[in-house]
Design a protein around this nucleic acid. Structure first.
Lengths: 206, 206, 206, 206
DNA sequence: GATGAATGAGATTTCATTCAT
DNA sequence: GATGAATGAAATCTCATTCAT
């Protein structure tokens, strides 16, 4: 009815956003509730009022973050188009989505280590959604003789995922390799081109 | 003096191994000192005696684990050999090294998230060492006209690293994709072949 | 002004009744203000509006409950009647009053333990009132040679009180002794008869 | 082997005793862990080390207190003796046991209100043990024609229990009835005699 | 008169670390 | 070198109470 959030919803939202930032930075165990409350400019008590426990808040943060993917790859697959163009488009979308949302990247990574206990039903969607679009594109490309017929689609999805993600999750490993800022427009585009090159041609000549 | 470990060294070693297992499972913040002591079957006090603090023990665990890489890729590069064979050999070595040491994989991953503060001087070595061998191989391959001349070696190293590691770090995402046990001999070999295929030829036909 | 309770009085009454039930169940320390408000289907703030504090509400609940006794033993003493009949009548009234009002029984019991700080001026009334009627009856019985002349009236009042109350306060101790429901009409009557028997004749034969 | 308690056991014991005193005074909900620790002159942390939680400590206190009864009525029943003498002896023992251990009386009373949730398997023993001895005495008395043959033993046990206990649990109700200190040697003996009188003869004359 | 959000003080519980032996 | 008990600081969580509307 009204566009505005109620005061309560606004507080809840503020907690969620502040928590997302801190959980992303420090992980579940590393984050302190006092710190979360201070960052949300709210009384600690309210965190428990709205989210029951720190763990539960963490799960909500995960859930909230995973929803971001839904807005992601809509319509990467264009039926008549060149499969290579489709792959390029999807991959670029995904790569820049990760590039621009460090929070998401880190939360997903923490969760991968936390045995996925909290998100077991949340994270698989990442690949699922990924699969829905890119999987279709790959199949289409194989059918149309564009891609190798012996391609294992699952493996390929995982590989593309890894190629994109690694650049962001391993920054402290990555940074020393290059002298310039790895997050600059130029460097990002360079990485993306490398991935596309690798994916399409491998390292072999010709 | 004597070949055997003194009782002291043996205790220290036991702490280190127990801590490695637990830090790998739960991370620095998730691990409890009580737990570490219990797992090492030793008095808590001894941990402080030998390692000063929990954080310091963690760093030692990292250091100890990173030493494992030194024993890794010795002699992957064989001067006269086909560059493809050299790549294959190095990649296989690395892939199976990760496959067989989950502890290492997880410790490295935690550390990547933990702002890398502890390992800033430790982790880059991973790529450094990697680079020493595989980098040489790639350069050799380019020079000999075997690999594309426009290959960015840094990017390629990172990519290969990512392709190998992702299979192990994202198990809970990976497992649902396949029905069989992803760590079985057969599945491991399948993944390795996929990586080699991708690296050498990309996904394009012909 | 009008016979109906104003909306305000009605709210106040609802709080009082809900609080009585909860304080009876959990005691002063065990009851939560949130819980009281929820049970009264009213905003927490109103509790403070009407009663100033949780403790004060508790006192009001006690006061309100103690008023129940006033309606109790009116006219148990009938001047000309057989003292035994008078005792029987008064005791029966008291026993069934307790039987039917668990709330009262429990509130009085909590209060007895709570240093009686709140009710120091409230609870003695229980025995006072008790005393007014039953005391008179006993005295009358002694005077008329019906009861033992060495009877200590205070002691006897306390004893009768105890004999009645124990059956209800110690239910979890009492229940295991009997197989049937201790609050059934039949069992209640049996207990009452036992008390009357004991009071009149003791356990000795003849 | 050695009579002395280890330091740990001594600390544990100190916590237990301090907690007993405080729980008796204020109940489970009213007692504060800080207070318990201070009274035991020990760090709060140790309470959790030894007892896991406040509730658990409370249960241990109950358990510990209930063991006191075991040392109680041993040999109240003397086979050949006059049943009245046996009753008198047992009742005196019980009465003075309660008189001298206010802690026990209060803990049992709190527990009776706490719906017996913690002690459901602990408290019934009170009457059980009571029953073992006094029950036997009563039966013996009936058989030997000393007591009324229509005596309900369960009811009688409960009644005797109530008559003894009430004097101590309802002190703030009892005190106003008498001018002198209700716990004085003289007053205690007076109460005991009243109970014995009532139990043996009731209030009727002759 | 009534509401829902908010709060500060404090309760329980946990943890890395140190003492006494 | 080793132990078990102990601790202070801080973490998570709870509660009676009060604003702002």
């Amino acid at each position: 009815m009204n566009e505005e959030l109620s005061r309560a919803d606004e507080s809840k939202q503020r907690i969620l956003l502040a928590a997302a930032a801190i959980f992303a930075r420090k992980g579940l165990d590393g984050a302190r509730v006092d710190e979360l409350a201070a960052a949300a400019r709210i009384n600690k008590r309210m965190i428990y009022h709205y989210f029951e426990s720190k763990e539960n808040l963490y799960v909500e943060v995960l859930r909230y973050n995973c929803q971001k993917i839904y807005h992601l790859s809509k319509g990467a697959f264009i039926a008549g188009a060149d499969p290579r163009e489709n792959v390029t488009r999807a991959l670029r979308q995904y790569f820049y989505f990760l590039a621009q949302d460090e929070e998401f990247v880190r939360l997903v990574s923490w969760e991968a280590l936390n045995r996925g206990s909290y998100s077991s039903r949340v994270l698989p969607q990442l690949l699922d959604i990924f699969q829905a679009d890119l999987g279709q594109i790959l199949e289409d490309g194989i059918k149309r003789g564009c891609f190798r017929s012996d391609l294992d689609i699952h493996q390929t999805l995982l590989s593309i995922h890894a190629l994109c993600l690694a650049y962001f999750t391993r920054r402290e490993m990555v940074q020393p390799l290059w002298s310039s800022d790895t997050m600059s427009e130029e460097m990002l585009e360079k990485r993306l081109q490398h991935i596309l090159d690798l994916v399409f041609h491998g390292i072999s000549k010709g």
